[in-house]
Design a protein around this nucleic acid. Structure first.
Lengths: 231, 231
DNA sequence: TTCGGTTCACGAACGCCGTTCGCTCCCCGC
DNA sequence: GCGGGGAGCGAACGGCGTTCGTGAACCGAA
């Protein structure tokens, strides 16, 4: 039913429609579609049919929005019911799940590396991690530091994964193109200057991102287990 | 000696004055002064008395400039003369030196996490790392993956260090202000929801950045050494 | 020595960005 | 019924990376 033309047109959008929640939801959508660089105040606002200024009533600045976003992702990480007999398996799984959750949201991990995550879900994650490690007999000081160290490793790995994923999809259409480029570069290296590197080339490319992540994770968890035993 | 006013004024800057080297030098200066966010094409150009367009004759885009910058920093990392008897000590030192070099240039480490460093100095670093690990008897596949994993950890730790450093210096003048803020937040956490976290609070704050970095590094190197022995 | 071509320098502009200002208008409590 | 506070938002500020087109400087050939 069209309005008579002499009526002053009213916005059909219900007023008071914005909220932290709707904003974060919209931002999550943009994040999934275009990655963290796509998440601009303007873009999120236009997704909600408004301008960037409107967001500032609900969010102090972009960084705050990004932290809310990260915590939303952290909320998706499944937390285990701590079982003393399987602590090692459980921490490993928890951290693999953390990385997987970040990977699902492109390069959201960059947020974690650009600030100390202090949201409720991030804190719960830290709490559960500590419980598991303590249960395994890891010394308290090591527990405290391990949360930090492993968080760093998991986030960094997720960031790297997102970059490679983007590079594969970027500009060209052939996902293998990026690998071929790097492989060509490596193959062109002077063997007399980089003998070991060139010698290990086939092994460098081996394994997918998950395997390589798992390798580092096992080193860290193994080290923590060793600390637990010697104490 | 002033010019007669009827002469068309000439630029007193010698033409052909720009080069990759002068640009990278200027950018390094900005980096030290204002961190990576201060390094904009405009800022670097104005440091050289010109406009941003002039840089594009020597550098394809900003990312390329940042990679050149990173490699310059990597060149400052002292490389050891490999000694089989001291391989473990030497890798540890090498990685601590890597982190220190990045720390000297604020948040340059963000560049390493935002791309795979392939510059000559970065490659030399990888080569030497591999030589040391192989010398220690670490299995080849582990050597190949370890370069990646440890690089991630070192860079991530440097990024985190730079953030904390910036937060300490940021806006307020009191460096302790930031710590007090975080401590207050932690102290306000409900102990019934985060019992372990709150219980370990004193230990979380313990140790400076170097000690905490060293902790994670020892976990990784220890894990690699264990792999070396069992093979 | 002159002349053409190539290369570098660079002013101006395009289309983004985060954030602020100030105005309008709605909703809630009185 | 009404006043005040807060949400919504158009416009603007100052910054960004990058491109385009113009012009000056240099170099080799004629």
């Amino acid at each position: 039913m069209p309005e008579p033309p002499w009526r002053t047109p009213r916005k059909d959008v219900t007023r008071r429609s914005l909220s932290r929640e709707t904003i974060v939801d919209a931002a999550l959508g943009v994040l999934r579609a275009d990655g963290i660089d796509g998440v601009s105040m303007r873009r999120v606002a236009s997704e909600l049919g408004t301008g960037p200024a409107s967001l500032y009533a609900h969010v102090a600045h972009k960084d705050e929005l990004l932290e809310l976003l990260f915590d939303e992702v952290a909320a998706e990480i499944p937390l285990p019911e701590p079982d003393p007999a399987r602590w090692r398996e459980q921490v490993t799984q928890l951290w693999m799940d953390s990385r997987a959750a970040m990977q699902r949201y492109r390069d959201i991990a960059r947020v974690a590396l650009g600030s100390v995550p202090l949201g409720p879900s991030s804190m719960r994650l830290a709490e559960v991690t500590m419980v598991l490690l303590r249960m395994g007999g890891v010394p308290d000081q090591a527990v405290a530091w391990a949360v930090d160290v492993v968080g760093l490793y998991v986030s960094a790995s997720a960031v790297e994964g997102a970059i490679v994923e983007d590079r594969k999809a970027g500009e060209g259409q052939d996902p293998a193109h990026y690998y071929r480029q790097v492989a060509t570069y490596f193959a062109s290296l002077p063997p007399e200057r980089f003998p070991t590197f060139v010698g290990l080339l086939p092994l460098l490319a081996k394994g997918d991102a998950d395997e390589r992540f798992r390798f580092g994770l096992d080193l860290l968890v193994g080290g923590l287990a060793a600390l637990a035993e010697e104490s």
